[in-house]
Design a protein around this nucleic acid. Sequence first.
DNA 1: ACAGGGCGTCGAAGCGCTTCGACGGACTTC
DNA 2: GAAGTCCGTCGAAGCGCTTCGACGCCCTGT
Lengths: 338, 338
Amino acid sequence: MVTLAEVARHAGVSASTVSYVLSGKRSISAATRERVETSVRRLGYHPNAGARALASSKSNIIALMVPLRTDMYVPVIMEIATAVATAARTHGYDILLLTGEEGAQAVRRIEGSALADAVIVMDVELDDERLPLLRTASRPAVLIGLPDDTTGLDCVDLDFAAAGALCAEHLAGLGHREIAVIGEAAAVYERRTGFAERTLTGLRERSAELGLRLLHRPCEGSYASVSATLSRIYDERPGTSAFIVQNEAATDPLLALLRQSGRAVPEDVSVVAVCPEQVARHASVPLTSVAVPAQEMGRRAVEQVVAQIEGRGAAEEVVLLAPELTIRESAAQAPPAA
Amino acid sequence: MVTLAEVARHAGVSASTVSYVLSGKRSISAATRERVETSVRRLGYHPNAGARALASSKSNIIALMVPLRTDMYVPVIMEIATAVATAARTHGYDILLLTGEEGAQAVRRIEGSALADAVIVMDVELDDERLPLLRTASRPAVLIGLPDDTTGLDCVDLDFAAAGALCAEHLAGLGHREIAVIGEAAAVYERRTGFAERTLTGLRERSAELGLRLLHRPCEGSYASVSATLSRIYDERPGTSAFIVQNEAATDPLLALLRQSGRAVPEDVSVVAVCPEQVARHASVPLTSVAVPAQEMGRRAVEQVVAQIEGRGAAEEVVLLAPELTIRESAAQAPPAA
DNA sequence: ACAGGGCGTCGAAGCGCTTCGACGGACTTC
DNA sequence: GAAGTCCGTCGAAGCGCTTCGACGCCCTGT
């Protein structure tokens, strides 16, 4: 293993000089710098991560806490995670993968061992047990998600309330009056995952303003569950002319079941989804949808966290990305009332 | 931040004693050990990861290279990744998340900087550019997947050839003679991802033995693509009575399209899939399938890698998990030939 | 020609931990 | 009762890097 000292010897300078060339923290003459850089390349030198971390109290690692649950749509999580990893690398950081399993304990471990310089937390619940710890931690933290109380915390998320409102507006604009919401699994609401509640709130408020009748039903992602939910909805509100879906796993079953029951999308019934672009595009009827910008969220989270590590960037910054509705083929003018 | 020295002072012993209590590498009297352990708890001590790594040349970190591609079924990747992370924690390791993007470069970085004690590589191509590096690396590596040449490498994977054979046998046993294979996207074959090829090989060999006619078509996961593929298949082989699907994203579209075209599953046409259990269970017709045991693969990979780090465990061990076919509702006796 | 300032470089002191050799005491063993 | 063991503990030497203060040197201004 090549060390700093060997590079120094090879280049005919002292170890500290090499260090300064690498970090750029002091000015070095062009000649020396080049000599050192050549030696680094020739010897294939990589700084020892442990030694560097010890000496500088900086590990260049960002911890990422991802949920382990299976009731969330996995591709979104994965997309955020890879976006985070990729963005982190462009800033010279690596990602340490923590599963939610360890919970608050993991935060303590990371904090205590100085394993990571900062933490990014996904799947935040409105009243998450990790929040107090993150607030008092000496390391920066950024949440992907939005808890009830954001004091002392940085957050990045889609503005789900606005997304909900946007869906309501779009359907209202098309003349729909009776709308059913097919939501996430009941468990998601029970553990108070913020995004689901916020969408619903935005949806309800805007619907009230626009005079829409709204019916919300949680739903699992299986055919059986979607089928049951659909029956209940039509029993209670036979006049339903549009669906808003916030449950990626339910979109395909929904479209298939509507088709089977003889209702054409979008001629007889409209569907608007809150889901990743990919899901919307590849559905059997391309979905008019509000995108969940997973990539963007991951990238922004990294940028915030890096800004904090480097001392720039105020804490307590809450970034809510504005939702955008893309019109595809699943929503159309409401049919004349029966 | 609490240090070893502070714990030592608090417990009234030397630093080395504390270290030995923590590592168990030398015998310590019960009395002393307890005193130290109490101090550790009281002070909330966590060893500094950097210092430990520097002194012991062991980081207790395992690097995991996950693919960044989106043409692979993401949930499987995620499931393996979380299984790896969870299993690693039980052995006292953390996971460093590397995206495939950096490719071989990442291997060099990790190796050079001693950031990780070992590497687990996913999405291995048959002739992967990272293999030579991994062979000569001083750190253990385990592949999840199976390259052409496994000399000097540890591998864990499902025995996809056997899985293919199993599908063929099952359908043959039900009296099917003309079988179509809906495969992964063409790009997956082009870059020579092993599992896809191996499944096909197993399938072909067994089919030949059993006298089955086989037609293989790569396919994207979209409705449009599945629809086109289906048309082509029925054009070429109108007598097709069964499908084998190895493309998780294509299962739902396939079932929907078969239904739409008036072919009942399994009465008119049988479907057997190679996919994760969850996909099989939640399909609109629960799928008779060979499971891709993502959890198990992740766990085994960690166990092998840890064994190697700790000096147990021979290198060049290739673990091929035996496939299991679960009978559900999508495959039945072939209808009498038309 | 000389003081004063930068600029570029070096040496040395740690960062917090592991680990090796050594040492003292209690316990055997003949 | 002396010699030999073993067990439990300690001190000190690093691991490879960063960083601070110091030191020369050359350039500038007068």
